[in-house]
Nucleic acid binder design. Structure first.
Lengths: 336, 336
DNA sequence: TTGTAAGCGTTATCAA
DNA sequence: TTGATAACGCTTACAA
């Protein structure tokens, strides 16, 4: 048996194609008994609407596109987390997830014109480029951005709160008795790292003396931590704007013969799957990227008169073993 | 100006739609001058064929699907590597990459029927399930499997050589003077880990006494390495069937107070981005998964009378610092 | 509330 | 070598 089409259903139910179409799309203006008859025919024939037919007629395909920057190397495994979240939210919807690299606006335009996804999700650092969301708007493609902080247009963005996360982490270290906390900043242009730095400064009350510049990489974290550990009095804790840099700090501590966490606490903003494999297992703030992406998909799929916003997205403290109380010795040293 | 359609081109060039279609698709049987006229019209109008129209008429969309197992946790970052390779090979083709979770054959069938991708790539461990490739064949969807070793049907598979990789790694350790090498095996059902174990056994000449069972996880690697390190005489090197387990072995060595690589060499089969962040930086065999996936895409896109096969895919030895010569002490101990 | 009919942009068949 | 013309399966004005 060849696949049933809308025509077959219409014929069997004794109605027009339009009626079938309305029933399938759950639109109202169809009498209850007619609807029942059509549904019966649909079930009898095992009718499944053709996605290609739909795409052709409606001008939009059954896909959601996840746009990522292929340049920005994905140190924190954001892409897989985002994919997992999106797939979870799309499960059973019949939609497919397109994962698309986007760099120039021109190539994004070609993509949107050609593939016509039903909606688009902009991952950082793409989410920080207004050209791209403007382009989506211009093309009539619904768009949600995943951003590290609330900014301009609140309807088109799922925002985390990396600033808060960084403050919380700093607060946690402060509560552990650390009075001198070094911070390893990320790349200047990285919005996530920037928010994290702001949060750190917030929590420390503007004491920026202990900030060393990194670029997100392990090597830069190592170098920055070396600098911080030469300070005197030496910081008793280091907070890094990214996990790779925190791993670098762990390496610097080892180099300097400093036991972690006894002589130095190290903590990462952003968590990675292998954080627990480092030595010692790295404490981190975990951002709910997967949940955020799932929320983005849901918002894309929701009817236009959607419920305003979803719950806030806060990072979670994952205390492993690289952080601990400031040692009595160093506290005494510092205050005495 | 609304987008130009094939009709506009046909009208402007004074030919039929079919002729335009033939020119666009590069099919022959069109007179040179006619072709030139059509191409001129195409350029003048900036005509770009509609992917939805094509999909509708031809029954296949402008997408390649990358199928992965959402259950199997992706410890080695295979998915991102595969995505990168596929996107590289698809760049500029106008095709999009769909990343789709596949578990049951039924859900794959629904996906293929609904989305109608032009081709499908089966990532491990999916590639080991004959049902899935059979289903693709049945549905007429071209399919390439990414497999750890050559097996049955050579046309539908891009095979690496994990067995060889494991042998090479063992050979490398042997050449460093290690006479007792422990092996941490991966999960029983994991084809990649299984090949690696076979390769190890190959190289060691059937001495399976030093194999401890793991399951791919860090914790299992830690436990297995503990067992191996209790053996006497103790192995001077440990090879693990996966990076997470090798990280576990590093942790076990630290626990036991064994310096790596002086007292114990540790090596991973399979490389990960953060291998260099471990302490000491973990030596590994790096499999060219990204290149393999790119090759799979190319083969999917190649005309049916494709060139038979591409170059073999061999893993590359990445010697970092966790491996070194067997110490004189332990060699003496062993032979004396 | 429902039916009729006109697209949407290709590809493909069949003649010429 | 080329031209008409008919699908393909759906959505949606417009009519009734």
């Amino acid at each position: 048996m060849a696949k049933a089409t809308i025509n077959d259903v219409a014929r069997l139910a004794g109605v027009s194609k339009k009626t079938v179409s309305f029933v399938v799309n759950g639109r109202d203006g169809i009498a209850a008994d007619t609807r029942a008859r059509v549904e019966e025919a649909i079930a009898a024939l095992g009718f499944v609407p053709s996605l290609q037919g739909r795409a052709f007629a409606s001008g939009t395909t059954a896909t959601i596109a996840l746009l990522h920057d292929p340049q920005a190397e994905d140190r924190d495994g954001m892409l897989v987390q985002a994919i997992a979240g999106a797939q979870r939210a799309m499960a059973g919807s019949g939609l497919a997830l397109v994962v698309q690299p986007a760099e120039a606006a021109a190539s994004l335009r070609d993509f949107l014109e050609g593939q016509r996804p039903r909606g688009v999700i902009l991952l950082p650092p793409l989410s920080a480029r207004p050209v791209l969301s403007a382009l989506c708007r211009e093309m009539g493609t619904p768009c949600q951005r995943i951003a590290p902080a609330a900014d301009g247009d609140p309807t088109g963005v799922i925002s985390g709160n990396e600033r808060q996360a960084a403050s919380d982490a700093a607060g946690y270290l402060l509560a552990l008795g650390h009075a001198r906390i070094g911070f390893i900043a990320g790349d200047e242009g990285d919005a996530i790292a920037h928010e994290r730095e702001l949060g750190f400064v917030d929590a420390l009350g503007g004491d920026a003396g202990l900030v060393a510049q990194g670029d997100g990489s392990f090597a830069s974290g190592l170098a920055a931590a070396r600098l911080l550990l030469e300070l005197s009095p030496r910081p008793t804790a280091i907070l890094a704007a990214g996990p790779a840099m925190a791993a670098g700090a762990l390496a610097a501590a080892r180099e300097a013969g400093l036991a972690v966490p006894d002589a130095l606490s190290v903590m990462a903003l952003g968590d990675v799957a292998h954080a627990g494999q480092l030595h010692p297992p790295l404490s981190a703030m975990r951002s709910p990227l997967s949940a955020m992406t799932a929320a983005a998909v849901r918002r894309l799929l929701a009817p236009v008169d959607s419920p305003p916003a979803e719950a806030g997205f806060y990072a979670e403290l994952v205390a492993r073993s690289s952080s601990g109380p400031a040692s009595v010795a160093s506290v005494r040293l510092h205050s005495g």
